[in-house]
């Protein structure tokens, strides 16, 4: 029996994010007080020195840079090693965890700060995951 990959379960304040991915849109929030985007979703700005509750949903580009990563060789039971667990920095500022879709991942082919773009990976009728690939 193959172990199942862990899947997210949306909460009220994150539903719009998951719904957006299902439509092929990257929806994240922006603070109307300090004009900065943030991630993950919550009904107030988490930036120190702001913490405003005047926030809105925006659709962003899905483009960013490979901020940091590991090449996992000791794999989660539902994943095939090696695979890339990455944090990308979106062009709009926020950072998010993802996988980089790449065959034969090696440090030489994954330079830090390389440009990346989103790939919408539909899992089922409720879940689409934001994966990224090198541009």
């Amino acid at each position: 029996m193959n172990p199942q990959k862990p899947l997210p379960q949306a909460t009220p304040e994150t539903q719009e994010y998951w719904d957006g991915l299902q439509r092929g849109e990257l929806r994240i929030q922006r603070c109307r007080s300090c004009n900065r985007h943030y991630f993950y979703p919550r009904p107030f700005c988490p930036h120190p020195g702001c913490h405003s509750r005047d926030v809105e949903w925006t659709t962003v580009s899905g483009k960013g840079k490979l901020h940091s990563y590991v090449i996992a060789h000791r794999a989660h039971p539902a994943f095939a090693a090696p695979y890339v667990i990455a944090v990308v920095a979106l062009d709009e500022g926020p950072k998010m965890m993802t996988n980089i879709l790449i065959d034969d991942p090696r440090p030489e082919t994954l330079p830090a700060d390389a440009p990346v773009e989103i790939v919408y990976e539909t899992v089922n009728e409720k879940v689409t995951l934001p994966k990224f690939r090198l541009v």
Binding site: T14, S68, V70, R74, A75, I85, M97, L129
Partner: peptide
């Protein structure tokens, strides 16, 4: 559960280690 687990993080070696490449 929503923003990390789906990407296959698996214990401290694949979480504690994530910042290193940026530092390098």
């Amino acid at each position: 559960g929503q923003f990390e687990a789906p990407f296959g993080v698996f214990g401290p070696p694949s979480m504690f280690s994530v910042p290193i490449v940026h530092y390098m």
